[in-house]
Every structure is written in C-alpha cells, then in structure tokens.
Design a protein around this nucleic acid. Structure first.
Ligand SMILES: [Mn+2]
Ligand SMILES: [Mn+2]
Ligand SMILES: [Zn+2]
Ligand SMILES: [Zn+2]
Lengths: 142, 142
DNA sequence: TTATACATTATAATTATTCTAAACTATTGA
DNA sequence: TCAATAGTTTAGAATAATTATAATGTATAA
C-alpha cells in the first residue's frame, strides 16, 4: 500500500476512474513510508506545494471521500472543527497532541487489547478505539 | 450535582453571574438523574420546548462554553459535524450509536483500566478515553 | 471514434460556530 | 438606595468547513 507503484490499476480495481487528479492525490497519500494523518486543508496545501497544476478544493473533497468510501482511508474524529483522515485503515489507537494538533498512531502493543464486557443490546460493535490526549509537560501554572 | 437545588449559588461559586438564562440552562442540564449528552442544537430545542421565553443561540453557546470552562461540562469529539457535550465530567468511555447518533456512557467497570505503556516523550497524558462505535445488528447485506 | 457516463471545476449554498456592537442587567460601594 | 461599572444578552454579520449545483471536460465502452 505504500509502494511507488502506479495507482492507475489500484483506482481501477476500486471502481474509480483513474483521473489525473485522483492519481496525483493517491501518490501524495500512499507513496510514503509512514502513516499520513491529515485534514483536507493539509492535503490541499501539500497538493499546491508539490504540484504545478492545481486541483480544485471540491475535487479534493470528492476524491478523499471516494477513496474513503472504498476503505482506503479512515476518518478520525478528534474535534468538531475539521475532519481528520488517516492512511492507516487498520483498527488502531491514537495520541493527539493538543499543543500541535497532531495525530500520532499508537502501536497496538502499547495498549493491551480492550475487552468490552457488556455491549448495548441489539447492537454490534463496529470499532473500539482509544484516544490519548497529550500536551506539553511544562504547562502554564497559574 | 443532579439535585433540584438552586443554581444561583452554584453559578456564583463558579464566578458566573446567575442570570436568568444561565439559571434556566443549568436547570435543564443538571436537574436530572442521568447524564445528559447533547449538542448545542439539542439544548436549544429543549430550551424552546420547556420555556415560554426564548434564549438566543449566541447565549446558549456562550453559556455552555462558560460552564464547560469552569469544568461542569465536558466536550466529546464524536464527529466533525458538531460538538457534543456531556454532563458527566469524570473520565469515562462511550458507546456511540451510529444509527441514532446517540452517545451512551460506558461504565468504567465495563472496560478494564487502560495502561499506556509508552507515552510520547516530553508530553503528559491528559486523558485516555475509549469510543465504542455500535450499530444495528441487522444491517443491509448487499 | 463517438456516445455515454462519470469527473472536475468555479461558485453558490449550507451549517456550525464565533464575532460584533448595541442594549440590558447584576453587582458594588458611595 | 442607586448610580457607576463590569459583565451579559442579543440580533445579526462574519467565518470556516463542507456540500450542492450545474456547466464543462474526460475516460471508457462499444
Ligand atoms: Mn470546536
Ligand atoms: Mn462536517
Ligand atoms: Zn492513525
Ligand atoms: Zn458521557
């Protein structure tokens, strides 16, 4: 998923037409070693930095959502200001740095597996995820 | 915190002038047996139902944020559409019903205490909370 | 190659939230 | 008691993220 291969086939397999814009966005998102946590704004900024041509904001939204619906991106709820997306689509936990507003993956081995003893009746569990909010150690002591 | 007492003293203790609007909002929020999870919109709707007089939306926002800053309300990040607030300010986990968009407290005894083995260097942990997303058992099987 | 379905785009609309500034009210301390 | 003051409420404007619209452009199947 993070190899420098062509995304034309990948997109096609997902039933998404491999347009220039989609291929470029996939390159940015998936041609990397590490997980990428981003907001639409982060991505749009990265596009305009990396690219000579521009991609309209509507297309960035459309493409990210299309890729997400196919299961290649995960949306993470951190605050109500904006949506965060994650190229790591596996079930995993996060650190959220309240100083930098940065999301950091928390290795599964870092937290023992969570057992929910009693679930809501008639419902099935879709995900169980931990959010660890961290901040600088030297805070202002009023 | 959930007794039918006067909120005039409570607000005053918190350094908030006990205005008519604030007292009314506190009654709605805290004069109840169970935890209340709500969005600003939920609360505004409840106010207009319960009350003959109206409270402006700006005041609802102002008041909820003022109460939250004093530590009597907690903000919960569930999705990026809107903010959720919680009258239960203790550290606790949640179920989120993706069908009804309802937040439900998860009893601490329902999940064994979570131990984060390795924290981010130079940061302190402010909270560790679990979000369990649930949905109806009988989903559409395409 | 051509028709068609799908995608991109600029721009408008929507929604949650915050800001502004004027009118109002609770509190303080003469 | 009662102004002076500081804080509060309010309608409405502004902002910011996101979604909708509709015209134009492009990928693909036949
Ligand atoms: Mn927010
Ligand atoms: Mn949204
Ligand atoms: Zn992640
Ligand atoms: Zn709760």
């Amino acid at each position: 998923m993070t190899k420098n291969c062509n995304f034309i086939d990948k997109l096609r397999e997902a039933g998404l037409r491999p347009t220039k814009q989609r291929v470029k966005i996939c390159e940015i998102l998936f041609n990397r070693e590490k997980t990428f946590h981003f907001t639409i704004n982060d991505l749009a900024k990265k596009i305009s930095e990396d690219l000579n041509e521009k991609i309209s904001l509507a297309t960035v939204y459309n493409t990210v959502h299309a890729i997400q619906k196919k299961g290649y991106l995960k949306e993470i709820a951190i605050n109500s200001d904006k949506s965060y997306f994650d190229t790591n689509t596996t079930a995993h936990h996060h650190f959220y740095d309240e100083d930098t507003h940065e999301l950091i993956d928390c290795d599964q081995s870092n937290i023992d597996s969570i057992n929910v003893k009693n679930n809501i009746t008639g419902k099935k569990i879709n995900s169980v995820e931990v959010l660890i909010k961290v901040a600088s150690d030297n805070q202002n002591h009023n």
